[in-house]
C-alpha cells in the first residue's frame, strides 16, 4: 500500500519581518532545506530536534498551515503542497492537528461543545460525534457545557485531542502536546494517544524536543537539526545504535533513572 505522506525536496523559507526594509519585500530566511521522507499508514512517527530546528514549521507544512517554497507533499497520492485553500478544504477533514498550548488553541469564549461541533458542522458530519469524542478521550459528557478555563491543563489538552479525532482523520499531527503538562498528566495523555492510535487506526506524527517522550510512543523517529533531516530510523534502532552525531548528543541528554547514583 502506498504511503500516506510522501514528501520530496521540501523547502520552506519565511519572510524575516525583523529585517524588512521600509520599502520592498523582507529578506527570506530558509527554515527547511530540502526534506525527503515518507510516512506509512498506521505509522507513529516521532519528529525530534532542538528548539528552532524547524519541527513546527515542518508540521505546519504537512497540514498546510503554510505553503512550502518548493518541493512536493503527496497526501494519499495527491500533491497538496501548493493547493489553494478552496481546493484544500474538502481534504482538510483527513489531516488534523493537536496544538501545543490548549489555552491558545481553544477559543476562550466557546464552550467545549461549540468547539467540538464547529468542525463537524463544517464537514456535514453528525454532531453527536462531539460527545463520542469526549468519551474516547475519557472526559465526562457534562464537560460539553464547560468553558476551557474551567478545565485543568490535562483536560484541556484532551479536548484538543477530542477535536482532532472527532473528524475521524487519517492523519494527526501532535506538536509538543505534552510539554506544557506536569509529569503525571503527560503520562496519561501519552497513554491515551497510544489507545487512540490503536482504536482509530490513526497515522500520527508526534513532534517533541524530548526523546524520552517519543521513545514510548513512536515506531519511527526523524531527527531534525537546523532544517535538515540528520537521521530517520526505526525507534529501536535509533535508540540502540544512533548513527548521527547530533542524535547521540540528544540521547545523552536524556536523564536515565539510575538507582545506584547517589544524590548530590
Amino acid at each position: 500500500m502506498a504511503d500516506l505522506y510522501s514528501v520530496t525536496g521540501l523547502h520552506v523559507s519565511l519572510a524575516d519581518m525583523t529585517r524588512k526594509p521600509l520599502l520592498g519585500a523582507a529578506p527570506r530566511i530558509g527554515i527547511l532545506h530540502g526534506l525527503t521522507f515518507a510516512i506509512g499508514r498506521g505509522e507513529v512517527v516521532g519528529i525530534v530536534g532542538g528548539s528552532g530546528s524547524g519541527k513546527s514549521t515542518l508540521g505546519r507544512a504537512l497540514v498546510r498551515l503554510l505553503e512550502p517554497t518548493a518541493g512536493r507533499i503527496l497526501f494519499d497520492g495527491q500533491d497538496i503542497a501548493h493547493l489553494p485553500e478552496p481546493a484544500l478544504r474538502p481534504l482538510r477533514r483527513r489531516f488534523q492537528m493537536i496544538f501545543q498550548d490548549p489555552l491558545s488553541s481553544l477559543n476562550p469564549r466557546q464552550t467545549v461543545g461549540t468547539i467540538l461541533r464547529a468542525p463537524l458542522a463544517l464537514h456535514g458530519l453528525p454532531l453527536a460525534r462531539a460527545a463520542e469524542a469526549l468519551d474516547a478521550v475519557g472526559l465526562p459528557r457534562a464537560h460539553l457545557a464547560r468553558y476551557p478555563h474551567e478545565l485543568s491543563g490535562g483536560q484541556r489538552q484532551r479536548v484538543g485531542i477530542a477535536r482532532a479525532i472527532a473528524l475521524r482523520p487519517d492523519f494527526i499531527l501532535a506538536d509538543e502536546i505534552v510539554s506544557g503538562l506536569d509529569v503525571s498528566s503527560q503520562a496519561q495523555v501519552l497513554a491515551l494517544l497510544e489507545t487512540l492510535v490503536r482504536d482509530f487506526s490513526l497515522t500520527l506524527a508526534f513532534i517533541s524536543h524530548d526523546l524520552s517522550v517519543v521513545r514510548r510512543l513512536c515506531t519511527r523517529i526523524i531527527v531534525l537539526h537546523q532544517g535538515r533531516i540528520v537521521e530517520d530510523a526505526p525507534a529501536a534502532r535509533l535508540f540502540d545504535a544512533p548513527k548521527a552525531e547530533y542524535t547521540r548528543m540528544l540521547l545523552s541528554a536524556i536523564p536515565l533513572p539510575d538507582p545506584d547514583q547517589p544524590w548530590d
Partner: peptide, 10 residues
C-alpha cells in the same frame, strides 16, 4: 492557535 485550528478544520 484557535484561529489556526479553525483553518485546519477547514
Amino acid at each position: 492557535d484557535y484561529v489556526a485550528s479553525a483553518r485546519v478544520a477547514g
